[in-house]
Design a protein around this nucleic acid. Sequence first.
DNA 1: TCATTGTGAATGAATGTCCATTCAGCCCGT
DNA 2: ACGGGCTGAATGGACATTCATTCACAATGA
Lengths: 230, 230
Amino acid sequence: MPEHASAPEPDLGSVTREVRAQWRTRQLLTAAARLMERDGFHAVSMQALADEAGVSVGLAYRYFGGKEDVLLAVIVDVLDAFAARVPAAIDAAGDDPVEQLAAAFRAYCEVIDAHRHAAVLTYRESKTLGPAGRERIKQLEVATSEPLRRVIADGCAAGRLAVADPDLFAYDLLLLAHGWALKHWYFERTLGFDDYVRGQTALALSAAVAPRYRRRYQRLLSPAREGAGT
Amino acid sequence: MPEHASAPEPDLGSVTREVRAQWRTRQLLTAAARLMERDGFHAVSMQALADEAGVSVGLAYRYFGGKEDVLLAVIVDVLDAFAARVPAAIDAAGDDPVEQLAAAFRAYCEVIDAHRHAAVLTYRESKTLGPAGRERIKQLEVATSEPLRRVIADGCAAGRLAVADPDLFAYDLLLLAHGWALKHWYFERTLGFDDYVRGQTALALSAAVAPRYRRRYQRLLSPAREGAGT
DNA sequence: TCATTGTGAATGAATGTCCATTCAGCCCGT
DNA sequence: ACGGGCTGAATGGACATTCATTCACAATGA
């Protein structure tokens, strides 16, 4: 637990409104994520949230319309992380669509791992959000899965993948990534993060890689750790 | 308030207390499931619950220790449904382990479909339950997945399945079954229940059936409805 | 068969707690 | 001393839980 409330705040006085507002927002968002990831949305009072962020309750209301807005912002924040990291991971994975798919899946899992319970908030609190917020989340979530769908489509087009329903497959990958958070209490007994990603990648690609390319991707299809190659 | 129980109440006067208590419990459980499935646990007040069940608040407390107990009971009820139906489905599926696996998965999905959101409660409200209840749920859930693990193990032993980590695979199947509830808002646009089950079965078995047995299970491996052209 | 009464099921207003939200004013830099 | 950032006690509402009271009915006695 690094610095909490009494973090060395930057000199807010010397900074423009705009930048200060951004800093405050980030400060609150971070606190909200931390608490809600640990205790669940309903168990976090605005008082606790403010305390954690090291500000007053009133100030929280200057930056967010209400508790529900905070929840929405936290969720959007996580979804933004997907939107930022997954495409980047794909770009960094070279031209091979199967490698790209594996990289994309790993990136999803990494974001989940970094936001463990916050990611689950998407499910858990869907009922808490008003219809407007809920709609926004749904849309963002679909958009977030878009890169994955595109990579799968590419792989199919290139003949490397053979998937009957790419849409379904894409969502399954999302689900398996979320599974790391959803079933963490179970998996952690036997698997580390890396084991989980490798195992799931192997399973998923077993179902998706076209038979004639199986050998080529042996490295990804076997969950065992191997020394050579990256 | 409309008496929701469209079923005519049995002549309570002529039955024993025991039976009456059971009737009441069931009545409350049904109401709780209905409301919580629709609005989420936190949005359901004891008043609303009592109204829905057609009883008074006070009576609800005669049958359940408190709101949390009701939640626990609803969840346990769903888990019991798994425990009852899945083994039965496996028994009814003959001797082939792959057929058994497909049947077990379908049974899971059917229970999920019958209890849509209630099944999600397991995730959503894990933070709401006290440590004791949470532990009970976890244990039940692991126990519930046991038949699935055994069938997979059988399949591997018989050489029909080739799965590196049966434990992981079993939980993935659970997750995909839950996916029907978790991502229902998305899937329902394009898939019916049966399409979903077939599609997921095809994907999962693609990853698991040993290569030399692929052809034998073509029926399960292709998501297309049998009979309709390939 | 008809009053009488004991039992515990059922009620729902009252209680106490918790918490989101507000706002009257304080602090501090300029 | 002015003004915007910030504070935190006060407010009001919602809701879980309790309990004094009512009520239905079966068992009892005549």
